[in-house]
Amino acid sequence: MHTDAWFCLGDTHVVCEDFALAGRTALGEAYAIVCDGCSSSPQTDVGARLLALAAQACLRLGRLPDAEEVVERAARAGALLELPPRGLDSTLLVALTDAERCRVRVFGDGVVAARRRDGGLHVHRFEHPDGAPPYPSYGLDPERLAAWRRCCAPVVVEHRSGTGAGVGPEPVCIEHEHTPELTLRIDELTSVTLGSDGLDAMVAVDDGVATPLPVATVLERLLCFPRPQGRFLARRGRRFLRRECARDGWRPTDDLALATILWPEAA
């Protein structure tokens, strides 16, 4: 089993507000974390990192964290640095394996991609219908949470699509009223990747016209690891952007963060 994480700046951003981590617990379980800081809140590049590190502290103990404990820990660290409370406005995706399962929680929006042993790719894309994901940091401020509830539908929508067994011809849409959680069977998988919504902001530019690319199309190209060792995801991501996207006129308009847990022996 291998893990790696990678993030990069999107074309339209000045600072990368996405962040990703991946690693192993003391017991050898794998974890992955992706955070995507809100562009309209201040210093969320820092906040996203604090949130990811706070989540990592829980995951390293072999525990899938809930939103409150992550955001409170991050807020304590942020307060020491005088980070504005809104600086913690960031989505958070976490994954943790055990002997049989990989459990994923999605706080906000983002993408979960599971590469299956039959070669298929199952893509779970989570988004908020109004484009206003419920950031865990809202839990620190009852007024902000109430304001979000007043003007936004309190749901996260999951779009399921992909290839291989268990995937129909049409995408499936599921509304979640609580924090979405996936449980994936490891014996069916070769990899699980968490991604920020930057995956949903890749465009193909042809003759000056930008056409959005389906997430599954991007992931099919991105998630092939010829040598799944060391910084396999960082190398793949850089080559994908520097060579393949440049060659094909693809551009990442938003920041992008990915974290992968890989079982190459199962491939």
Binding site: P226, R227, Q229, F232, R235, R236, R239
Partner: peptide, 8 residues
């Protein structure tokens, strides 16, 4: 060897 593993 390196290029096959996505290194530049």
């Amino acid at each position: 060897t390196l290029s096959d593993a996505d290194f530049d």
